[in-house]
């Protein structure tokens, strides 16, 4: 039944016309007389669906098309091509019934009135979203408890710290209890403690209201803590959609074996077990082919003076970097052909 799938995206494209200018005065004059425009494919033929209650991480370098996709889904942008459906609405029609059920939090934009305490904005949103009085009080009380807002409600927004402000932004965005949340870099610029708090809060909100959430973040910890599934995009193209763990297995054919020896050891003796990436004193790190890890570990235990051994997935940052490198190589190979066409 299509109604049960809150987010459906099919062959979505969003192109921007960007006006190009050479630097300097001469460039400015040239561009004044004759403008050069280029199409930038911010989102290029992307398809996916997201089930109710899922938290999906959107990964990609700056300019990959993550934010553009979120903005199309929130109804801010018209798609150039393709179909986007959210809660069975077409977002770009911006129906009130649709907007009342979603929210978009942008770490770099704020809706709180700068000169007033956050409570003023909360009250405005209560009126705008037609939140019944008792529901408003209840939700606000819940959010106040979860995010420890009590001391902030009456302080001027401009006097709040970045982290405090983000907590209030989240509150303002969630007072109407949206079913679909688009969180664009909600933890940007926050310290580690605050990042953890926001993360816990997102998980709690998801569990409590079975909300569907798409999250973008440059902090992999956000993604690993919250998302089972990730969608990786780069240059507007979808590179991967699926389980975060499976991505690591697919992209990184190795596991990381950390060993600690009971006595100093000649590094060369390790070479036969795998690729040595780090060797310092009595500690070493080796990359070992995924299938062979248990075998290699057993052999090492038998043949070397080992005090401790752990087998880990390689850091997710490395995995993602590898995905983008592969994509860049593939583009470079296609690249020459494309340029000849133009």
């Amino acid at each position: 039944m299509p109604g049960s799938i809150p987010i459906r995206v099919q062959n979505l494209c969003k192109y921007y016309q960007v006006h190009q200018k050479e630097p300097g005065l001469v460039g400015s004059l040239k561009s004044f007389v004759k403008r050069k425009y280029a199409d930038v494919k911010a989102v290029d033929d992307v398809s996916f669906t997201i089930d109710a209650g899922e938290i999906v991480g959107f990964l990609g370098p700056n300019g990959a098309g993550k934010t553009t996709t979120l903005k199309v889904l929130a109804g801010l942008l018209y798609p150039t091509n393709g179909v986007a459906r959210v809660l069975d609405f077409t977002p770009s029609e911006r129906r009130a019934a649709f907007l009342r059920q979603i929210t978009l939090v942008m770490g770099q934009k704020q809706q709180l009135a700068w000169d007033l305490p956050p409570m003023e904005t909360f009250l405005v949103n209560a009126a705008i979203y037609e939140i019944p009085d008792d529901q408003f009080k209840k939700t606000l009380a819940e959010l106040t408890e979860l995010l420890e807002l009590a001391p902030l409600l009456k302080k001027q927004v401009r006097k709040l710290s970045l982290g405090e402000r983000m907590k209030c932004e989240l509150t303002a965005a969630l007072l109407h209890r949206p079913k679909v949340l688009f969180l664009d870099e909600p933890t940007i610029g926050l310290d580690v403690t605050m990042q953890t708090k926001i993360r816990q809060f997102v998980a709690e909100y998801n569990a409590r209201y079975r909300a569907t959430i798409i999250l973008t973040s440059h902090y992999m910890a956000d993604v690993t803590a919250l998302c089972q599934r990730v969608i990786v995009i780069d240059h507007g193209k979808l590179l991967y959609d699926g389980d975060l763990k499976a991505l690591a297995e697919k992209i990184a054919p190795h596991k990381l074996v950390r060993v600690e020896f009971s006595q100093a050891l000649d590094g060369q003796r390790l070479e036969e077990f795998g690729e040595v990436v780090k060797m310092r004193g009595q500690r070493a790190e080796l990359l070992v082919p995924r299938d062979a890890t248990s075998d290699v570990a057993a052999r090492m235990l038998a043949q070397l003076p080992i005090a401790d051994v752990t087998i880990e997935e390689p850091p997710i940052e490395d995995v993602i970097t590898r995905v983008f490198e592969q994509a860049a190589r593939a583009r470079a190979e296609r690249g020459e052909a494309e340029e000849e066409e133009e």
Binding site: A113, D115, L116, E120, T121, L123, V124, A126, A127, I128
Partner: peptide, 19 residues
């Protein structure tokens, strides 16, 4: 009308900050 009143109330708040 409720929405207008709520928005105007906040605008007044901002203006009164900048008397």
């Amino acid at each position: 009308l409720t929405k207008y009143f709520a928005l105007m109330r906040r605008s007044l708040g901002v203006m009164l900050e900048y008397r």
